[in-house]
Design a binder for these strands. Structure first.
Lengths: 329, 329
DNA sequence: TTGTATGCGTTATCAT
DNA sequence: ATGATAACGCATACAA
């Protein structure tokens, strides 16, 4: 049952049916009612692919909201992750006639600015339930990127940090390393929390005591005090699993200051799979997150929500890939 | 850059370009090379929506593989979950000119039977890594439904049992119930394991001791011994959170045999949101899984994989919805 | 082996 | 307010 058949049944043109479906103004009351009834009677379901193919003539407008904090990093080494994510978004946008506009997450958005915006992508761990509620209230299609908030049911695209971290720990165990420390960023960022949970779960399952330290990777604070404390309280670990590559590199630099050799004395594993980690010396063993895919998938999902019907909110987790390199045995 | 432009650049017809893209036989070596080079040079990306719209003339063939165990339940009360999932699949299939054929998971599939099969949906908790590997080896597009296997990176659609269970436990805590027992099915089924993890996590976080019992919900064994043991060892709990609705109803029946009143003495919470649970007396408090959506989403994802390119494997988790009803305070 | 032409279901432009 | 029709990008039946 397509709109042509509906048009025939309702004795109008397909253009009119299309107008009714898209809540166009220029339809008389009686015609609209007649068409609506026909649509209901024949249980019409629009073909989303045809819709989008046809919609290609129009442009979709999407806001990409990024916190000031991440915006600042975007062109530095530490910002590689979100840069790659942005690449994926842009790529996907180009392939879909989608205009994207980057907006500071902290800026006030009156409904006026959002008038002709079709959807919003909220990037990174700074996104809060408040942000989500704001957009949900005005019925704006929404996807969170690299952030998950259990309390609000909203679409999101994240990496599978739990299983990635589990894999890393299991790998280290298979290399007969049992003293494994986790150094992580703030756990209010879902990504860090997820990896933390994976680490703890495997450690406990094996009957080992998890040992973790928190490090502020945002300001890249001096790590010496942390490592100093770890070494004196806990001794030299067999391995350190870090929340992400940038923390892992910082760990390595700091350990080397203590004349500890990587990977001979301590294996270090990061998370993200950044280029800078790959080119680091020693080259970083890590869990590669498909960053571009994260971005492009998020935009695709957003377009799904904008153009399709009956979309039920889901969390999409991307698998990570273990990359054995020089910083670990 | 679409195939028309490519055709112009390569000085062939769009039909030829299409043939190359679809690995059609009838293209001469030189022409194929020429076209492939052009495609690469201009970084051609096919428009998946146009592809599918055009493909509508053809039918997509999909195998739905179900284990004997689930197949048997399918028309009974306990089989409501997968029946609803199947409804979703069928619905989605109808809307997409997709022919589905239900196949026993245990049956031997020679490559001959799979000759004109475009993709496979593996249903339920009986799916193993072996099944996945078999299909991956022959490059068959694949989606797992209601099952997740961390060791093999394969697309799957599951419910978010972890957060659902967490929510249930937190709800009970908010009602000042602290003696909360979990009765679960076999934990090798990811769904049960996930809910179990959510239960344990919240209990431990609050500083309470998790207390759980395993029950074979498949054969619906007598639950009296289990409850008897629980009552004597642990006493009467304030609440019981069950792995699914069918176990929850069994729990209620058994507790009532012990002259324990629901929900006055014990609150019982299920999982799934089945009709039979809703109509049960007392009506079951539960976490509703969008079963039809699970099915339809799985098929849609499979078609994405069949028709799109560069699809990176993901796990899709559907949010659950807490339904406060009569079996709990 | 290669090209031409039609159709997939919808939107949007231009008439009326 | 409504209708006719050309796109959207691709696959394919049919011709050559």
């Amino acid at each position: 049952m397509n709109i042509r058949e509906i048009a025939k049944k309702a004795d109008v043109s397909i253009a009119t049916v299309s107008r009714v479906l898209n809540n166009s103004e220029n339809v008389s009351f009686v015609t609209r009612e007649k068409v609506l009834e026909t649509l209901k009677r024949y249980e019409f379901k629009m073909d989303p692919w045809a819709k989008r193919l046809a919609s290609k003539r129009t442009v979709t407008k999407v806001f990409i909201m990024i916190s000031k904090r991440i915006m600042k990093q975007l062109n530095s080494k530490t910002g590689e992750f979100y840069s790659k994510v942005m690449e994926g978004i842009k790529n996907s946008a180009k392939a879909n006639r989608t205009m994207i506009e980057t907006v500071e997450m902290e800026s006030n958005l009156d409904e006026d600015k959002l008038k002709n915006v079709n959807g919003v992508l909220l990037i990174g761990g700074d996104t809060t339930a408040e942000h989500v509620r704001f957009f949900k209230k005005i019925g704006m299609p929404l996807v969170l990127v690299d952030q998950y908030i259990p309390t609000v049911k909203v679409d999101c695209v994240v990496s599978n940090g739990y299983d990635g971290a589990s894999y890393a720990v299991k790998y280290l165990l298979s290399q007969h390393i049992r003293k494994i420390v986790h150094i992580h960023g703030f756990l209010n960022h879902f990504g860090f929390k997820d990896r933390y949970s994976g680490y703890v779960a495997v450690m406990e399952q094996i009957g080992l005591l998890p040992k973790s330290y928190e490090y502020n990777d945002d300001i890249m604070e001096d790590m010496k005090p942390l490592v100093d404390k770890m070494l004196s309280v806990y001794g030299v670990p067999g391995a350190i699993f870090a929340s992400n590559d940038s923390i892992a590199m910082k760990v390595i630099e700091t350990l080397e200051d203590f004349h500890i050799k990587i990977p001979e004395d301590v294996s270090v594993i990061g998370f993200d799979g950044t280029e800078v980690g790959k080119n680091f010396i020693p080259s970083l063993t890590t869990l590669k997150v498909p960053m571009r895919e994260m971005g492009s998938l998020a935009l695709k999902r957003l377009l799904d929500i904008v153009y399709d019907q009956d979309v039920y909110p889901v969390r999409i987790s991307l698998f990570t890939e273990f990359m054995k390199r020089g910083s670990s045995i």
